[in-house]
Design a protein around this nucleic acid. Structure first.
Lengths: 341, 341
DNA sequence: GTGAAAGCGCTAACAG
DNA sequence: CTGTTAGCGCTTTCAC
């Protein structure tokens, strides 16, 4: 049994195909009576418009691409969930492009994005060089970024510098002087923009408070719990020259640091305080103090902006900075011996 | 500047559009010389076929749908990554449908899947009732399942019953008698199929070994680390009547159990052994013994089967059971006092 | 091996 | 408010 076509509905409803199209899409005026009959006929036939035919004819596809470097890390999957939910509400399809680090970066940019099948795209925390940005934009569709500021693309993000500074100041306020930072960098020595900004915020806060930063305390991990665990363990193993607090650029890394601390016999926050960023749900079980960056909301917000733009299009959407909020739990506390140096 | 069309390439190469189509798609015979000229012309013009036009004309879209209940849980995002990678290699697009639990279940099934824009779909760990399965299948496209056996749909999975039994037997072999299980169930009181099978495997192993199961030891959590943490904490708080080992149906839950044990002053594996399922990367930092179910491979494998089917189509793909492997680390060990009852 | 031409199923002017 | 009529850009017989 073949799928019914719009033509079939037209015949059954006793109107033209144009009227059916209008009645079903809601565009253009159709008499209530005709509308009812069309709906009825479509219903009976189980008619569903063909996306491809519709898209080809109209030039729009109700389909938005999401480009991200990872899908199995909390921040990305959470933003993705936000984006997916918002698109679903709006009746849009979502096409997923996963770089897997750098593995498919090239392929996605050159082969996939250009097939003119997307109405728009959202790029999550991507760091693209000018040429790559040009490739992205050459698809000729609106793009909005989430996370790292993408040069030349309107972006939804938080103030990562501020987050880094506030997290560090929280620790400083608790009397800590020896504060380490566990941040990230990507495999190709290109920073995740957010990582470097958070790190800069940390450095600024330390400098402003007149604290020295031991270079050995400025760690780089790959954003995974396990890697952070290893590095934190090495850092904390030294009983004399270890920090009393750690600011990790993500909750997963913060969790790794807490595990590391415990495994070298230190208590949290007794011997070492730990603060993260994200408000990852697992932070609860760790009693982790963190800064909530509302990842899901970043995703939904990006979609809202994109759809507004697609609908009205009053100028390009511009950069937008969303707030981030402290969630204080039990992993941070006053330094044990403030006089220690 | 408008995108070049197939026509433009044809003119430039001095051939017909039919030849360009054949040359570019690789279907049908084209002389090497014509092929070269077409490629050249397409190259120079920066031509990319229009997906919609191509799909409309051919009836195929090189687009596969992925339907899953969550995207921010490790198992699902890992399977998704596997699926995405395999599809990318094959030059297919991936359309994502996220149920978000049950939030969009209905919508996805009724509104989205039917728009005849997919060549096939993979359904990850979905439990559908017969009517829902019918809806899925009514899209008229091949579907393969991953994870839970989907009645009427060929599925790639592991033997969850066997996993549950082996995990439990591992504990029994270490001398444990008092073994608890931390499994999952979904919000609507419909089991995740895998959860109930793992639980059954646990029960069988216990029965076979002549161990009694205290009903209070058969816990249900929502698969999150934090929920597992809470429940395990309640379970382990009782100093007299607590289990000496816990089999958790996922590594995230196992991690929660380990945190809980430590927080009530117990050592792992000294006082309580914990085993999980998944081989979640964070298991390393926990020293977690687990059973690797090769989640990513489940995803890639499903795609391979699907593409084979799409290409050759020698009969329906059938159910397939992939192996799972022990990864023994330090969270399981001999029971402290084997004579304890 | 290659070209001509007929669609694929729908949308969007343009008349009426 | 509704019908007519071109396409949208590509694939695919069917001849040559």
């Amino acid at each position: 049994m073949k799928q019914p076509r719009l033509q079939d509905v037209a015949v059954r409803a006793g109107v033209s195909t144009a009227t059916v199209s209008r009645a079903l899409s809601g565009k253009g005026h159709v008499s209530p009576r005709a509308r009812a009959r069309v709906r009825q006929a479509a219903q009976e036939l189980g008619f569903v418009v063909s996306y491809h035919a519709s898209s080809l004819a109209s030039g729009r596809s109700r389909n938005i691409g999401v480009v991200l470097p990872y899908v199995d890390r909390w921040y990305f999957s959470t933003v993705l969930e936000g984006v997916a939910g918002a698109l679903m509400e709006a009746g849009y399809d979502l096409t997923l492009y996963n770089f897997e680090g750098d593995r498919y970066r090239e392929t996605v940019l050159t082969d996939f994005l250009l097939r003119k099948r997307l109405d728009a795209a959202v790029a999550v925390s991507l760091h693209l060089d000018p040429e790559e940005t040009a490739q992205l934009l050459s698809a000729g569709i609106p793009v909005v970024g989430v996370g790292g500021p993408l040069v030349g693309v309107p972006t939804i993000s938080i103030d990562d510098f501020d987050v880094g500074r506030r997290a560090t100041e929280h620790l400083i306020g608790l009397g800590h002087r020896r504060i380490a930072h566990l941040g990230g960098a990507d495999e190709r020595e290109r920073y995740f923009p957010m990582s470097s900004d958070r790190r800069t915020g940390y450095e600024r806060a330390m400098a402003d408070a007149g604290r020295a930063i031991d270079p050995a305390w400025s760690l780089i991990a790959d954003y995974s719990l396990t890697d952070a665990y290893q590095r934190a363990k090495n850092l904390l193993a030294d009983p004399v020259d270890r920090p009393t607090a750690i600011f990790a650029a993500s909750d997963e890394m913060a969790a790794g640091a807490i595990l590391a601390a415990r495994d070298v016999g230190l208590t949290v926050p007794g011997d070492v305080s730990v603060i993260g960023v994200d408000a990852h749900p697992m932070g609860e079980a760790f009693g982790l103090t963190t800064i909530d960056q509302h990842a899901r909301r970043q995703g939904t917000h990006a979609v809202e902006r994109l759809l507004e733009h697609l609908a009205g299009g009053h100028g390009e959407p511009s950069n937008e900075v969303l707030p981030a909020h402290f969630v204080v739990r039990s992993s941070t506390g006053p330094v044990a011996d403030p006089s220690a140096h």
